[in-house]
Design a protein around this nucleic acid. Structure first.
Lengths: 342, 342
DNA sequence: TTGTAAGCGTTATCAT
DNA sequence: ATGATAACGCTTACAA
């Protein structure tokens, strides 16, 4: 590989000058600059990124931590795809690279390792859950002063940087919409409360029912694990409630679709016999039959915002704005599953 | 940050000894070893990965190149998610990290940059297309001796490392299955011929029809761009062929589903009035109505195999086995869309 | 405007 | 079994 030294020799300048040219630093004769560039071109020189990182004491990498997901292969969810794309777009603009870390099932979550090894300058954490173990890990990371940002997860009582979506409001919209469609008995298929967004949705659901002066029967509160299968299984329970329930709000599209499939097998058709709203407005919502009304969440923008905030702190490109706790707006995409014709 | 030096001082040994302990090199007194480990623990020392990379002249990173996809946010396809997961799993076992590169729309494809900058030791390239420009880029990469592996793409006439799936056979299975279901007039909704797998599927389709002694009408050959929308649009053309066609083989699930949706709007129901088989056996196939019969492709394993082959060359952990050109087996997942009851 | 030289934190090769 | 020491290719004061 061609090094700076060879370029310096060919251009008849010092190595430092070559560096200056490549970093656009200090004043310099255009002529020298050209000679260096010419020499570099001739030799096909490219600065060694690792050596640069080493000298700058900065890796130029943004870590992206992905949770372990059993069974389901890791990225299979729309959710992660969108967030990753957003992060990717943002890092590119900062001249950074994305270093992916897939968490293992067992390995006791040690967020601090990548920090310690200094292979990343900061990181964005996806899919974290609110467990004592993870709280502990994150607290450590934070105390060590390592810049990181959580996406789509909030830890109550901890002042961590995070980019979330307004799931409370989204759910409020969803349930209000169902009520406007004439439903009165709305069941709720939620996900694990280890995710703050599950709790947020629950709150939105409650609010909407409350403002309409409607009672919620405890039996209407179901829990799945965000998989299609869990939605399919929830159909059992919903079938038993068929005489007292006329709508379902599900915490993601996949569960909503599983539920629709399960109930269809019993002749109960979404968008006709009962209304359904899902969450995420993922691809699946458009593929489903009937097309699924869903809460849209700006995952792509969330990824971008998280990367931006964390890189700003690292590169000092923007002033420190203290704690970043964004909550991006959610919306409602109405399709046919939320109708009720019977 | 704690450096090796401080550990050496505290342990009362030389810096070299600290390195030896951490790299498990050479013979050494257990006692010295313990003293070093103890000191490291006390100081919470972790080797600086960048410095290691620099000294070893090896980044420890595997580059993963993702194509630019207009409109559709990058990872939104099942396809990439699976492959990425496979690569991720494999690199972890080699102590490597994944460095993601998202190609920009315009930037004239320069695969060689990441190589030149030496930020990755090798790479896996996803979603490449067979254009003169890309052939040129890849040829350059190859001539420079940079280790890389293509996934799910074959360049005829070029001896490049690649991990592909047996799309010809998969398509053969698909069409044979349709014929066994009693279909005789099978249309084919293919993707762009810039992807070798499109051409492979075409071949499998031809073979199957040929071995059954069936003619293929040129009007049955449709082309989409792998999006649901393009499948939906193809429904127009298929509708016109409704009296001469009784089945469709689509080159991916999303197009198949779009097609099914488009035809349903005209009252032509998949799995009843005509049969459909898709490709990829993605999540969408299970979400669709009716559930979609599809060709399964081991994307996860393909990612793994590609990463493995390329890392083997880098780390010398396995003997050089010359040109790696794998073709992993595909299968048929029968669901309800391929029935024909009318 | 350009050159000199001191790091950066390791690895790896010699000695001892 | 352990210690010196020369790389590694760059950034960045400081000097000139």
């Amino acid at each position: 590989m061609v090094t700076r030294r060879e370029v310096a020799v060919l251009a008849g300048v010092s190595e430092a000058t070559v560096s200056r040219v490549f970093n656009g630093l200090g004043p310099m004769k255009p002529e020298t600059r050209d000679r260096v560039l010419q020499a570099a071109k001739e030799l096909d020189y490219h600065p060694n990124a690792i050596a640069q990182s080493f000298a700058r004491r900065r890796s130029g990498n943004l870590g992206v931590v992905l949770p372990y997901m059993p069974k389901v292969h890791l990225f299979s969810a729309y959710y992660f795809s969108e967030i990753l794309s957003g992060i990717g777009e943002e890092v590119k603009e900062h001249g950074y690279d994305m270093l992916l870390t897939l968490l293992s099932p067992d390995e006791h979550i040690d967020y601090t390792h990548m920090h310690r090894s200094q292979k990343v300058d900061a990181c964005v954490i996806l899919g974290s859950q609110d467990t004592p173990e993870q709280r502990e890990s994150l607290l450590q990371l934070h105390e060590q002063g390592f810049p990181f940002c959580l996406v789509n997860q909030h830890f109550e009582g901890m002042a961590l940087h995070e980019v979330d979506a307004d799931h409370v409001h989204g759910s409020l919209l969803a349930v209000r919409h169902l009520l406007e469609e004439g439903c009165r008995h709305v069941a709720f298929l939620n996900g694990s409360p280890l995710y703050s967004n599950s709790k947020d949705r629950h709150e939105g659901y409650r609010k909407a029912m409350q403002e309409a002066g409607l009672e919620i029967s405890p039996s209407w509160l179901l829990e799945g694990n965000y998989s299609r299968k869990s939605g399919y299984e929830a159909a059992d329970k919903l079938w038993e409630l068929r005489h007292e329930v006329d709508a379902v709000f599900a915490a993601n599209d996949r569960m909503a679709i599983g539920l629709i499939q399960g109930l269809r097998e019993r002749g109960w058709i979404a968008g006709r016999d009962f209304a359904v709203v899902g969450c995420d407005d993922s691809d699946a919502a458009k593929l489903s039959d009937p097309p699924l009304t869903s809460i849209s969440v700006p995952f792509y923008e969330m990824g971008r915002a998280a990367a931006r905030s964390v890189l700003a702190r690292v590169t000092g490109s923007e002033q420190e704005d203290g704690l970043v706790q964004l909550k991006l707006p959610t919306g409602l995409m109405v399709r046919q599953s939320s109708r009720r014709n019977s």
